[in-house]
Design a protein around this nucleic acid. Structure first.
Lengths: 351, 351
DNA sequence: CTGAAAGCGCTTACAG
DNA sequence: CTGAAAGCGCTTACAG
């Protein structure tokens, strides 16, 4: 029992008593066509359930209508980024394909380069760090559609190895340090993430700068940073780093690069018999759902990953269309104060 | 400065001094062609960096070479499933597109139906529960390629509202109950996940069956189940459920449907002044990374989501190709005993 | 074993 | 405002 072939624009043309050209004009909105003809064609098309064959259209227009997003296999917040990116891509009429890559920055860069060279996509958005030379020059002329696959990064190494990208805003780090300082804390430590990630570098640099400022401040000559430890995203390293601290380290304020590292710090502190938030206070990042249920619950930064994904995809779509990129926009991060930072003057902890 | 058009099979034919037919035969492996000619064509193709235009191929073969996977916006283990699915799809030569859907089961089903009706994909794999009528009849004749988009679920409602799918294996639940029973526990509670999910239903049913068996066992007339609470994936509900327990509930063994719920239970217990694993022991599911750093660290089920994703995609690819589906295969779940279940005879807790 | 020709379903100059 | 015709880059009977 053969399924009947889906109707083509030719079928619609015959049924509507017009030419295929007219059907195309009615559907694409291009060309000149009377409103009445257009309405009629659209009605006929709908009545037979006509759907344009995208492969045929693509062949003719030399435009695939497809984008790709490249993510890493591990970081779980990337699902939310993907959701936002997918939403924008769909709204813009693009199919979005997902690839996961792994390995060193060179390997990831090679995979992205390969993907772009295959020419199956009009644009590629990478959520994982890649070397800058694979990216499409952001200074490329706007106004005309690029002829080859555009590559845009949500986060990347820029020329000065500094952060770019909506997720990399490290402002909350300064607020952590300043608030804890105001609450009487004087001894600080940073547990960093992998410095292949712009976000990790930005948080580390922001921590260093904030502690420097604190040390230069009035009546705070006793501010001391125990330095930066970690340098991976592994909570096990965070736990070990706490074990490696001198026994007179507390009272200590730890700024961790994400919630998982913060959980490692909390665990390490518990293992050493240090109370939290008594002997040690900790901040995280990402608003991982479980963090609210730790004891003590984790102070963190609630990042709107979905919105970040939307914005990154908007940049890609604009680049693919040769349009002006959208403005960077305000930070999408918000601090959530919880128990792990202890009682704070002027702050009411959330659950 | 115009970029030169990428070479076509016609260009390769001219350069190689053969017909386009021969180029096609050399590339696809179809048709009859001498080994020498084939090698020559392949060499020329490689030397000019020829890549077949997939849109053109697709139009001719009426096969898009594209698959879609539908996931939910929240459950973070789905990234790992996606990674496994993507790996298999890529190896089988398919492009894999990702869609996220939300809403009620009816809404999700409608979205999947729509996606399949669009005909842009040869197959759709859904990771979120949908109603069974949208799925391709698994009893469909194999041996010939289906004419329309195949829809396969990683997990689904089947006719009897029972679990199917590699992730739904509830065997570990029985092992939890039996092991805790052997360790002397007599009072049990289950914190269930959303019953829209086959996995949640399977775990709940397995819990009920295991407790029944325990109550029917020798010398265990004092086994008592405080019932099933929860019914969402929200850790807040789990926390509240603990608050709603009578104050003489402990000693209590709680089987939670996942790690996040287990964290909610732990938090609720701490708030009531119940110690863990003294007054309350808890098990989770999913091996969420943070669970190993809670105090007490969380006993859980390590699910190989990547492998589950691979298998689901293998089923889809087989269905798309009209091949026999691969065998279901053994469970991909493994219990990791940690501190939250306390000391257990014959078990050594992992970190 | 190889090639000439048709055709997949669209869009787009171009002519009327 | 509308239509006839060409062509995007492949694959595949079919003929030799």
């Amino acid at each position: 029992m053969a399924v009947p072939n889906p109707p083509t624009s030719r079928d619609v043309a015959r049924l509507a008593g017009v030419s295929q050209t007219t059907v195309s004009y009615a559907l694409t909105g291009r060309g000149t066509i009377s409103a009445a003809t257009r309405a009629h064609v659209l009605e006929v098309a709908a009545s037979v359930g006509y759907r344009p064959n995208l492969a045929a259209r693509s062949m003719r227009t030399r435009r695939t209508g497809r984008l790709a997003v490249v993510s890493g296999p591990t970081l779980d917040h990337q699902v939310r980024v993907l959701a936002g990116a997918g939403e924008v891509a769909a709204a813009a009429g693009y199919a979005l394909e997902t690839r996961t890559v792994d390995g060193t920055v060179e390997e990831r860069t090679a995979r992205v380069r390969e993907l772009a060279a295959a020419g199956e996509h009009e644009g590629v958005l990478t959520l994982v760090p890649v070397l800058p030379d694979v990216l499409t020059d952001p200074a490329a002329p706007t106004g005309e559609r690029p002829e080859r696959t555009v590559v845009v990064a949500e986060t990347t190494f820029d020329d000065h190895m500094r952060s770019v990208g909506d997720l990399a805003d490290a402002g909350p780090v300064a607020e952590f340090v300043e608030t804890l300082l105001a609450a009487g804390h004087r001894r600080f430590l940073h547990v960093a993430g992998s410095d292949q990630y712009a976000s990790a570098r930005a948080r580390r640099d922001a921590y260093l700068a904030a502690v420097d400022r604190a040390a230069a401040g009035p009546a705070t000559r006793d501010v001391v940073s125990l330095g930066v430890v970690g340098g991976t995203w592994s909570p096990e390293d965070a736990r070990r780093a706490v074990h490696d601290l001198p026994s007179d380290a507390p009272p200590l304020a730890v700024v961790a690069a994400n919630d998982l590292l913060a959980a490692g710090v909390l665990r390490g502190a518990a293992e050493r018999g240090w109370s939290a938030p008594g002997d040690v206070v900790v901040t995280g990042w990402d608003a991982a759902e479980m963090g609210a249920y730790l004891t003590p619950s984790l102070t963190t930064v609630d990042v709107d990953f979905t919105e970040a994904g939307r914005r990154a995809m908007q940049r890609l779509v604009a680049a693919v269309r040769g349009e002006e990129p959208p403005p960077r926009g305000a930070a999408v991060a918000r601090i959530v104060w919880r128990e792990s930072t202890g009682p704070l003057p002027g702050h009411r902890p959330a659950r």
